[in-house]
Design a protein around this nucleic acid. Sequence first.
DNA 1: AGCTTATACAAGCAGATACTAATATATTTT
DNA 2: AAAATATATTAGTATCTGCTTGTATAAGCT
Lengths: 119, 119
Amino acid sequence: MVESTITDETAEGTDTCCTPPGDIDSDAMATDLQLLTAMGNDTRYELLRRTANADDGVCVCDLEAAVGVSQSAVSQALSRLYTAGLVTRRKEGSWRYYEPTETTAALLETLDDLRGTHE
Amino acid sequence: MVESTITDETAEGTDTCCTPPGDIDSDAMATDLQLLTAMGNDTRYELLRRTANADDGVCVCDLEAAVGVSQSAVSQALSRLYTAGLVTRRKEGSWRYYEPTETTAALLETLDDLRGTHE
DNA sequence: AGCTTATACAAGCAGATACTAATATATTTT
DNA sequence: AAAATATATTAGTATCTGCTTGTATAAGCT
């Protein structure tokens, strides 16, 4: 856990090299980190990409075949993506279909753009 | 390591629930994952935010005061961000100034936008 | 009802990760 | 040159993570 020092604006006595930085929004941080850590893993990233590629939603059974881990691992990974708000899931018969959210679309698009333009 | 099954287009014999997904670009995946895993950590995320907030670049000494970890940890975190291409660094005297890259700006902006619009 | 299939959940564990402490290097100051 | 400051590097370690295996639940099939 990161215990940030609450640096308020009036702290100017410090004679360091540059300006003391203001605080960052810790709610925002928690939200962002949930997204980043959920996406930041081989298996989950690949599952997310595959989910995003298939327009009609993908079921676990197909994803399972695609990535090289057990059914259980895929299920856990998808749960994590769901909790993070990166996919929605709907049940249809005995299958469960996963679909990307707008959040996923936006993030993947940004990543795609970044790879395109080597600034 | 995820060992993906190379699902080529002509694989249609499988009688599963939905369409077999095509493969994903593994170079793209590696690139994206480097960004995501670099940002996806309390300390590094906060350092990155602080770096992004300060326009003229921040030096390690100030960042060190802001997050609640040792000087060594800050140095390691910044190195990781640098390797991932999220910050640039320049030396000025005995200090080292870190600045965000375009990549950082783009990603943080997307994250900010996502928090703004609760779709 | 029993069997099979699709998915989830729980426990345990190997490997990854992120820290601390100690030390090294580089720059400035005295 | 010695001391102090700023940052990096190395080694060791506790915690976290993501997997596997085994089991549970739920839906379809015979």
